[in-house]
Amino acid sequence: MSNNDRPAARVVCMDRDGRVLLMHWYDRVSGQEVWEPPGGGVDPGESPIEAARRELAEETGLPGSAVLDRWVDVDRDFEWLGVRYVKSEPFFLARFERARPEVDPGELTEEEREAYLGYEWAAELPPGVEPPNLAEVVAELTRHG
């Protein structure tokens, strides 16, 4: 199974003020910087929401229990470390009662540690955000209160 085929799940984290948590990564192959919601691969035997909760905890230190059973399927087409990924991923919603909860990525893989530049609770999505239609994804996830 190529890396390309592994299913993944991501989490749109919203704080009390409606900011979106973005992780900041550096792709050493392309030289590009990427902002994207936390998330990652679904392990064998895991459901997408279980993966979303585990990845959120690993990448941010935030409680996986904040991830709600509410998602939007998002078509992805991106390159990372020289590999092109074309797939659909569920983006789950997580809400936090505080403004800008502290993020502590305690359990990054070695590859992630090399690429990690930090994070931001973004009031406005920066250029270069992945996926490019993230604003629409956030609107869809938050449409019903």
Score class of each variant (00 low, 15 high):
residue 140 E to Y: 00
residue 15 D to E: 08
residue 57 A to G: 05
residue 29 V to Y: 11
residue 116 Y to T: 04
residue 103 V to G: 06
residue 141 L to T: 03
residue 91 F to S: 05
residue 57 A to E: 15
residue 96 F to A: 12
residue 127 P to C: 00
residue 72 V to Q: 12
residue 122 A to H: 03
residue 50 E to R: 10
residue 10 R to N: 11
residue 33 E to L: 00
residue 12 V to E: 01
residue 133 N to Y: 02
residue 107 E to A: 14
residue 54 R to T: 12
residue 8 A to H: 03
residue 125 L to F: 03
residue 48 P to W: 02
residue 94 A to M: 13
residue 129 V to E: 04
residue 90 P to R: 14
residue 38 P to I: 12
residue 9 A to D: 09
residue 55 E to I: 03
residue 63 P to N: 10
residue 47 S to M: 07
residue 48 P to D: 08
residue 35 W to C: 00
residue 122 A to K: 06
residue 139 A to T: 07
residue 127 P to T: 07
residue 105 P to Y: 08
residue 91 F to M: 14
residue 144 H to R: 15
residue 101 P to S: 12
residue 37 P to T: 15
residue 31 G to T: 04
residue 2 S to N: 11
residue 25 W to E: 06
residue 144 H to Q: 14
residue 34 V to R: 13
residue 83 V to Q: 14
residue 26 Y to W: 13
residue 124 E to Y: 07
residue 10 R to K: 09
residue 83 V to E: 14
residue 137 V to R: 05
residue 8 A to G: 08
residue 110 E to P: 09
residue 10 R to G: 01
residue 50 E to I: 05
residue 55 E to G: 10
residue 73 D to T: 06
residue 52 A to D: 09
residue 80 W to Q: 13
residue 100 R to G: 02
residue 24 H to T: 01
residue 56 L to R: 10
residue 38 P to Y: 12
residue 51 A to M: 07
residue 8 A to F: 00
residue 141 L to A: 06
residue 7 P to K: 04
residue 85 Y to V: 09
residue 133 N to H: 14
residue 18 G to H: 07
residue 15 D to W: 07
residue 39 G to T: 12
residue 46 E to H: 09
residue 68 L to Q: 15
residue 104 D to W: 11
residue 127 P to Q: 08
residue 86 V to F: 00
residue 145 G to E: 04
residue 104 D to S: 14
residue 123 A to H: 00
residue 79 E to Q: 13
residue 30 S to C: 05
residue 1 M to P: 08
residue 93 L to E: 01
residue 11 V to S: 04
residue 27 D to C: 07
residue 49 I to L: 13
residue 122 A to V: 04
residue 46 E to L: 12
residue 123 A to V: 05
residue 61 G to F: 14
residue 42 V to H: 02
residue 108 L to G: 11
residue 85 Y to A: 05
residue 136 E to M: 00
residue 38 P to C: 11
residue 67 V to F: 02
residue 53 R to A: 08
residue 104 D to T: 13
residue 37 P to M: 10
residue 83 V to F: 03
residue 103 V to N: 05
residue 33 E to S: 12
residue 29 V to T: 15
residue 102 E to F: 07
residue 81 L to W: 12
residue 58 E to C: 06
residue 11 V to A: 04
residue 113 R to W: 13
residue 103 V to C: 11
residue 123 A to F: 02
residue 96 F to G: 11
residue 75 D to W: 06
residue 74 V to R: 01
residue 62 L to V: 12
residue 86 V to E: 14
residue 14 M to E: 10
residue 32 Q to T: 12
residue 51 A to S: 15
residue 48 P to Q: 02
residue 3 N to A: 13
residue 31 G to R: 11
residue 121 W to D: 07
residue 107 E to Y: 10
residue 120 E to C: 02
residue 53 R to N: 01
residue 31 G to H: 05
residue 54 R to E: 09
